[in-house]
């Protein structure tokens, strides 16, 4: 039994410790966000955050994750209340088939937590491990920028209201 938190909720899983996180998320915890793309850490469709850092869940055995904090695209918001990054991807219509997008978003989330105001080069570099086959790259880049702006505005508002108090 391995225990970790997933999107803020503590979960204990019974899968064998050598099972890659991807299959535990999908098959044991019924989360769809992380996708099987290659099983080799080459494409990024399975990307999730562990303790805030993006990794390939398809090659990460859960034995490494005892006590750690995992975040998937489900942890960024919901259909009814999308988070800033999700709202940005919807606003930019940044998907075609969308199979790569959840992993793409987790990589972008890591970037925005590290560099709140990324420039084009930051975004290209950060997303390099992620493959998209439909050619939605231009929209993904725009969506990450839009999310960064939204987060900055939200922070400015929060600071303003903090200051007013």
């Amino acid at each position: 039994m391995i225990t970790f938190t997933v999107n803020g909720t503590q979960r204990s899983v019974t899968s064998d410790p050598d099972t890659p996180l991807l299959y535990v998320l999908r098959d044991e915890l019924a989360l769809n966000g992380a996708k099987f793309g290659c099983g080799l850490g080459q494409c990024g469709a399975c990307t999730v955050l562990v303790d805030g850092e993006a990794l390939f869940s398809c090659i990460t055995p859960v034995m490494l994750l005892e006590g750690r904090s995992i975040r998937t695209v489900e942890g960024l918001g919901t259909v009814d209340e999308p988070g800033p990054l999700q709202a940005a991807f919807i606003a930019e219509q940044a998907a075609q088939c969308g199979y790569c997008i959840a992993g793409m978003m987790m990589r972008a989330q890591e970037l925005l937590e590290r560099i709140p105001d990324p420039d084009d080069d930051d975004i290209l570099a950060a997303l390099e491990p992620q493959l998209c086959r439909c050619g939605t790259h231009m929209r993904v880049i725009r969506a990450v920028k839009r999310a960064a702006q939204a987060l900055a505005q939200a922070q400015a508002l929060a600071q303003a209201s903090e200051g007013a108090r």
Binding site: G41, Q42, E53, L64, L65
Partner: peptide
């Protein structure tokens, strides 16, 4: 660090484990 994907060339790729492995592991 792994071995990052090459720039359009057929070349080995290895995922890095910096985020996955703590010091004990």
């Amino acid at each position: 660090q792994g071995v990052p994907a090459s720039d359009g060339q057929a070349a080995p790729i290895m995922p890095g484990f910096v985020s996955a492995m703590n010091d004990a592991a």
